[in-house]
Design a protein around this nucleic acid. Structure first.
Lengths: 224, 224
DNA sequence: CGTTTGTTCTGAACGCGTTCAAAATAGTCC
DNA sequence: GGACTATTTTGAACGCGTTCAGAACAAACG
């Protein structure tokens, strides 16, 4: 959102800038749309955009936050009709892809900097922690009552791992140029099934050493 | 390398520009070092740098290519003393980390754009295919005579998968801010062991369905 | 009403990567 | 040597994201 401003008129200007930006991003891509274009389209001076958003990236961030908020009820609805871990995982992620679909290229601009956790736009940055926590809570939820027994030692780590898995799928989707992103659809089907199976299998007594190794790895990756 | 120029003096100028750039990148980071700085340090005008390199990124690319070439004998040496899949995998990757260590931040600039396969600097781009192929050949080699039996169906895909695994480790290393990148060291140890175990286990008759699923996934991700 | 204080907006300017017409230099042939 | 071509180098200029001093406007108070 444009950071809360005093007057109603200001609120409106902020939204106008956001709207102009997103339209231009969609129409001609993030890089091609310049801050000057955005300002002109919103009917303000270049500098005005910076009164509402500290940077071009921040506009994308705002879009991302709003999108996440809008998605919450959609996610809830999608999970109603899904009971198994596999279907819940798949539907949860599918809701996001569908919701982001019209703005796939905007998301690409965001995930470009996914590399650097120091970058404010990274899905791993402190700035995005709030969103991440909400996301991860959903994965905890779908593990909670899915009928699959989760090993005690895996339980606290698994939501985060599934979130990471989700980021991988979204990332793949963003760069997937196949018609209608059909490759991602296939990937999501296959991967959801595999992940669900893996979780199930990981509970077998025989798998204890494998699970312990995996947990060690997770610990190293997460620990900082 | 600076694209082949006619005179020896030109060759030298090109190297001077490369050298100045890398020094500045190391000293103050990729973003802070400007093309003007680089040119001044090399004793030429700003535009001269663009006679040798089409972009700032291209300098990093050149560094990367040279580094890969220099690494070949080091890799060969490292593999002499390693016989198991686990140790070979670990040593192969370790050689790269050690070699890149003084220029970790330069590599970071390169991997920043790893996201977009359309970006020329991406490790997945057509522009980097030659390097990638050489890399993958090494992974084929360490699978060849490591004493572990590789399932027939997995064999053609596995080198690419291991290369991808390597990119993951390098990526983690590049953003690893722990002292001396000790977390990466731990990760590399654990992950090499796990990967080697996985490969071994994947050959068991019991694991056939799991392996087939994994292969399907690989197919979807690679196929384009 | 005028003054004052805070909010919103302006547009010129900065530093960056990059481009390019033209100048300087080197190489070649008579 | 001089004339002509190809290579190398220059530095001003462009478009971008961003900054900032101050103009314009609104609200509150006397």
């Amino acid at each position: 959102m444009p950071p809360t401003k005093a007057t109603a008129k200001a609120e409106e200007t902020g939204l106008k800038i956001l709207d102009s930006a997103l339209t231009l991003f969609r129409e001609e891509g993030f890089d091609t749309a310049t801050m000057r274009d955005i300002a002109v389209k919103a009917g303000v001076a270049t500098g005005a955009a910076y009164y509402y958003y500290p940077s071009k990236d921040a506009i994308v961030m705002d879009f991302y936050q709003r999108a996440c908020a809008e998605m919450q009820p959609k996610i809830e609805a999608a999970l109603e009709h899904a009971n198994t871990l596999e279907t819940r995982l798949r539907e949860l992620i599918r809701v996001k892809l569908v919701h982001f679909a019209p703005n796939r290229s905007v998301l690409r601009a965001l995930l470009r900097n996914g590399a650097d956790p120091k970058h404010p736009l990274s899905p791993f940055s402190p700035e995005t922690k709030a969103i991440r926590d909400v996301d991860i809570a959903w994965f905890r939820k779908i593990l909670d009552d899915c009928g699959t027994r989760i090993p005690r030692d895996l339980e606290p780590r698994l939501p985060g791992v599934l979130w990471f898995f989700q980021m991988g799928v979204i990332f793949f989707w963003v760069i997937d140029e196949s018609p209608n992103q059909s490759r991602t659809a296939k990937l999501l089907d296959l991967a959801s099934k595999s992940v669900a199976t893996l979780v199930k299998v990981s509970a077998l007594p025989l798998m204890r050493p494998v699970r312990k190794s995996a947990l060690q790895l997770i610990e190293v990756v997460k620990g900082d």
